[in-house]
Design a protein around this nucleic acid. Structure first.
Lengths: 335, 335
DNA sequence: AAGCTAGGCGAAAACGTTTACGTAATTAAA
DNA sequence: TTTAATTACGTAAACGTTTTCGCCTAGCTT
């Protein structure tokens, strides 16, 4: 009863060899259906499940992937993980989580610690603190890797991103159509392609509409809510913009608070628009115009690509999967 | 160069036995400092990291824990995971994530799949669909397990919870002090101790203040936002309550929407108060009075307890760790 | 009847560690 | 000086699988 249940035990009870049991469990063609059935029924009866460590050791497959992200307590990333986990379940994979807290050293340390066979592949959305592409250039040769949202470009790896440039362009045009001419930019992810693309979309939209771009005031994100609040207030005081374009969700609270503290009415005095996956955007006061990324789908697509690679399936030609974001116009831009 | 780097390789290069290398790497007292240093420097030089599968197989330690929760895309759970992950890093543990989507069968299936030595312990917040304590009674004997927030009572396991009864009592009193007499209850987690405690706190507060409790209307949570909206609207129409006490975050959006659609002003016509970890509660229109649970700390405490168990440290007498929630009064209750 | 083929199975090595135990050399105790 | 204890290291088994290779039998083909 207390006896351990492993392949050896199954073999003994059935009076066959452990090799046969192993093959039967893996549905090998070498084993007759009759024997397979005997093995399967006994395995179920004894509640046998293979020991993962032994299996990994021998087969070099772990059925595990790692997700490395800045922080799980974030609407975008928690939704991505939800998507990843859902696909992982379908493929029978396990999901390990690592948070970098935007620290490149932690990111590298975690990643390195996974190269000893702990996982079969990695899904990552890189930290914003630095852009260290030498490291990742080497890394992608060592282990199957898929980037999502925050990527390194020009690498031989699948990258799942969104139409940052286009949607930022479109959103900026929306503000211009609402009559804004002094649109300030709340700048996040400045070291990353996503952040740069958003900013470029914003600048190009201004240029297209004949608004001098280099005079547009910018606040860069700091990891300190109070500091961001101060900077935005300063921005509002000095430049008196008629709109704030926030490129990351983290600016929403300080932006709203700054307007309140300075008695500026949204959207009459200042219009606000932000990249965000906040589910309560429509309940804010006033409701917030958002660019929402399909975080859940990004997670799903990234996971699907990785599992295709791990199962040696042909990837659909393209290494760059680009999903569309959605601009939802609400009261904060006068809609 | 391409040669694999494992203990055997280290042993060869240093002309010592693999046993010595293994012991040196594990800082065994049997090995001289001189030898240890030779091993450590070579290991660092060759970028050696032990193969986890081999190590697990032999030592029956995985340095891995599983977190089983309903859904990661939820403010409470994503914060909890953040806390768990942070402690796990300190202890050098890895964290696996599994989502049950409130499905008890998935929950049991995941848990069972972890009993073959894949993890050293489990952190779980159980699904709300059913209360199946026989299963968990057996389970806690098989593997170190810590419950957080959503627990099974009367089991020999650490449980990290919050003061649900007290804070619900206090919140209800707050509504009564605001002049409410017809307080409707939006009921979630009804199968779980947390849900029952919240409801009991609400009922007892009413009783204490001489309000007939059994006439209070209740809406029970369904996994369908549209349905919840309809039910709340129906509730508002039929019973004309002067307050809504929402026991879970998921009721916030339908509650606000219902009031808007029925042209009821918050807080003048209806006051609203909800359990919630929404970071933007203060930005809602109107800002929302919340009971926020210390989700991050709950995760941290749960993880700490588990790692103490795994490291055979003495647990501080008590198996029930109860943290305090915070009632933040805002405009939605007229504050 | 001899030779072949294929199907079904088993023996044994291997994966990379950890660890119980043995042993030699050195040191301490008698 | 002999004996006991200690230190430092090695041998080899074990963890539970997977997989290569080979064997045996039964059924065919000539």
């Amino acid at each position: 009863m207390a006896e351990v249940v492993n392949i050896k035990r199954l073999a003994q009870e059935l009076n066959i060899s452990i090799a046969t049991v192993s093959k039967a469990l893996n549905d090998s063609y070498e084993i007759s259906l009759k024997t397979k059935n005997r093995v399967w029924t006994l395995a179920k009866e004894l509640n046998y499940t293979p020991n993962p460590a032994a299996s990994n050791l021998r087969s070099h497959k772990t059925k595990t992937v790692a997700v490395i992200i800045p922080c799980v307590a974030n609407n975008f990333f928690s939704l991505s993980i939800k998507g990843i986990e859902e696909i992982a379940r379908q493929y029978g994979y396990h999901v390990l989580i690592y948070q970098t807290h935007e620290n490149i050293e932690a990111e590298v340390a975690f990643t390195n610690s996974l190269l000893n066979g702990r996982v079969d592949g990695i899904l990552t959305s890189v930290s914003s603190s630095e852009y260290n592409s030498e490291y990742y250039t080497k890394l992608v040769k060592k282990i199957p890797l898929v980037f999502f949202d925050r990527v390194y470009e020009n690498l031989d790896a699948v990258k799942v991103t969104t139409d940052d440039y286009e949607i930022a362009f479109q959103a900026t045009e929306h503000l211009i159509e609402c009559g804004c001419t002094k649109i300030a930019y709340l700048y996040g992810l400045e070291n990353l392609p996503a952040g740069k693309a958003r900013f470029a979309g914003y600048l190009d939209a201004l240029k297209t509409h004949g608004i001098a771009a280099d005079e547009q005031p910018v606040v860069k994100y700091q990891d300190d809510e109070e500091l961001n609040l101060q900077h935005i207030k300063e921005l509002l005081r000095k430049y008196k913009p008629d709109a704030l374009f926030s490129s990351i969700e983290e600016f929403i609270i300080p932006a709203y608070c700054a307007c309140r503290e300075m008695n500026l009415k949204i959207p009459n005095d200042v219009k606000i628009l932000s990249f965000s996956n906040l589910s309560t955007a429509k309940l804010l006061s006033p409701s917030l115009t958002t660019i929402s990324q399909p975080a859940f789908e990004i997670g799903r697509e990234a996971a699907k690509s990785l599992f295709k690679i791990l199962n040696n399936k042909q990837l659909d030609d393209e290494q760059n999967i680009i999903l569309k974001s959605v601009l939802t116009k609400r009261e904060s831009t006068g809609c």
